[in-house]
């Protein structure tokens, strides 16, 4: 489904990703772990087409298409979803209106039937249960005045509404207490299927207790330095990133 080949990317002229490669197949959940500043979020943003990030070289194929030349909205319409680490607020735009506009844009691009207000309202009522979100929250402005937990639930709710092929979750666990974490994780699990794939970017192992990954990759200094299964996450939990960072440094200095 997704193939990243030797991807280099920079932010504000500083190179963050330095030759990252990754393959994700339908039905898989890949966890991307790494210390702060290693390039986890950069990967998520470059894949989604955030204009503040520049891919300088390398190639990304999404379902065989050249992803990097597509506009961000066309990536979304092709089935790529980014669960934002810090979702932005949009004053005056009601969340449910926003979600309907989003849903209908995607339907329209595929030549499918758009939903009217009433239909979408019923549709949304079914979906809010997945993240145990208060329906009244969807009548407020997008993310405005939402708590950290509410913002994350909102992101997962939108994922449920859009049912993307590939969901990239950028630290969906950051800032959540245990209960909220469990709710968000259960929401993600309900959306797993053999047809779609998930890239879960996280700093901590704990969400992986709930969302069990097929593959775990560790990014250090813009590259994947180690890949494995669920056990790798536990190792990191036990040892921290320091050990891995040291071994990477010695590898790089020895050339």
């Amino acid at each position: 489904m997704l193939e990243v080949k030797d991807l280099h990317a920079s932010v504000g002229g500083v190179e963050i990703l330095k030759g990252l490669s990754l393959r994700v197949k339908a039905g898989e959940v890949h966890a991307i772990m790494g210390p702060n500043g290693s390039g986890k979020s950069t990967l998520a943003n470059v894949l989604a087409g955030n204009p503040s990030y520049t891919a300088t070289s390398g190639e990304v194929l999404f379902e065989g298409e050249d992803l990097l030349t597509m506009l961000p909205e066309n990536r979304a319409r092709a089935g790529l979803f980014l669960c934002f680490q810090h979702p932005t607020e949009i004053h005056g735009v009601r969340l449910d209106h926003f979600m309907r506009a989003s849903f209908n844009s995607i339907q329209k691009s595929k030549g499918l039937q758009e939903m009217d207000v009433l239909k979408f309202d019923r549709f949304l009522n079914e979906k809010v249960g997945i993240v145990e979100m208060d329906r009244n929250l969807t009548k407020r402005s997008v993310n405005e005045g939402f708590s950290g937990g509410e913002k994350k639930r909102n992101e997962i709710l939108q994922m449920a509404v859009l049912a993307p092929k590939l969901a990239i979750l950028d630290e969906p666990d950051s800032g959540l207490d245990v209960d909220a974490l469990r709710t968000v994780a259960e929401g993600i699990n309900q959306l797993r299927s053999p047809e779609n794939a998930i890239i879960l970017v996280t700093h901590y192992q704990r969400i992986l207790d709930y969302v069990v990954p097929d593959n775990v990759h560790v990014i250090i200094n813009g590259r994947i330095v180690k890949s494995g299964d669920k056990k790798l996450a536990l190792e990191i939990e036990a040892q921290g990133y320091d050990e891995l960072e040291k071994s990477v440094e010695s590898l790089q200095s020895s050339g």
């Binding site: 989604a48 087409g49 955030n50 204009p51 503040s52 506009l71 961000p72 909205e73 990536r75 979304a76 319409r77 979803f81 980014l82 934002f84 979702p87 932005t88 949009i90 004053h91 005056g92 735009v93 009601r94 209106h97 926003f98 979600m99 506009a101 989003s102 849903f103 844009s105 995607i106 691009s109 402005s141 939108q158 859009l162």
Partner: peptide, 27 residues
């Protein structure tokens, strides 16, 4: 803001539609 536009784009909403949406919300 660029952040707001990217957020809308990421949800499949074009920049033009995003402006209309934000302006209608504002009014």
């Amino acid at each position: 803001s660029e952040d707001q536009l990217f957020y809308c784009n990421q949800r499949g909403i074009s920049t033009e539609e995003a402006h209309a949406l934000i302006i209608n919300g504002f009014c």
